[in-house]
Amino acid sequence: MKRNLCLALIVLAATLGGCAANKPGNDPSLIGSWKGVRSENGKCQFLSWKNNFKPDGTFNITFFRDAQQTQPIQTEHGIWKAANGKNELRTAGVPLPDTYTYTLIDADTVHYVSVAKDPSGDCQEDYEFTEHRIRG
């Protein structure tokens, strides 16, 4: 009986491991550090930011009051999922995710359009922005 149970557990573990291995990952072209700004003349309050999309599906983002990024406002972290031109950010402590469509302009430039956001977010307007990869 013990042997059958052990064998069943091994088969189950192998099956689940195989499913995890086939799980689609995040778009690898977004992994890394990026910076962006919200237009000063746009629909929402001006912000600039630096974010880091990690391969393990976590992110952190620091918001700044100024374009030079010397006056931090706050840092947030959470999990991200991106595939097929859709990026979803689930910030820790925020009930609903922010969702964007994205288009890669080149390896170091990505354009986003906001399509869904948590009602507690600082801007409830639809807006778009471009981020640039931070190298070095």
Rank of each mutant, 00 (worst) to 15 (best):
T109K: 12
T75C: 04
T15R: 15
T101G: 02
K86F: 02
T99A: 00
R38M: 12
T70P: 06
L12H: 06
A20L: 11
E125Y: 03
K117I: 12
P97D: 06
T75F: 01
S33H: 12
D122L: 13
K50E: 15
V11I: 07
D108N: 09
N52L: 01
P72C: 01
Q68W: 02
K50H: 14
I73C: 03
F64P: 08
T91E: 13
L89S: 09
Q124K: 12
V115T: 13
A8M: 09
G32P: 04
Q71P: 03
D126M: 04
G85E: 03
R65M: 05
R90A: 13
N52Q: 11
Y127S: 09
R38C: 07
C44W: 04
V110T: 03
D66C: 00
D126Y: 02
T103G: 00
D98V: 06
I31P: 09
K23V: 00
T75H: 03
N26W: 02
N84C: 07
A92E: 15
Q68S: 09
A67R: 04
S48A: 14
Q45W: 12
C19A: 05
A83S: 04
S114Q: 10
F64S: 07
T130W: 00
N60I: 02
H111Q: 13
A21I: 03
R133A: 02
L9T: 01
G25Y: 01
A83P: 09
L7A: 04
A116G: 13
A20V: 09
T58E: 13
L96Q: 11
S48V: 01
G93Q: 08
D66K: 04
L5M: 01
I10M: 12
R135C: 02
A116K: 15
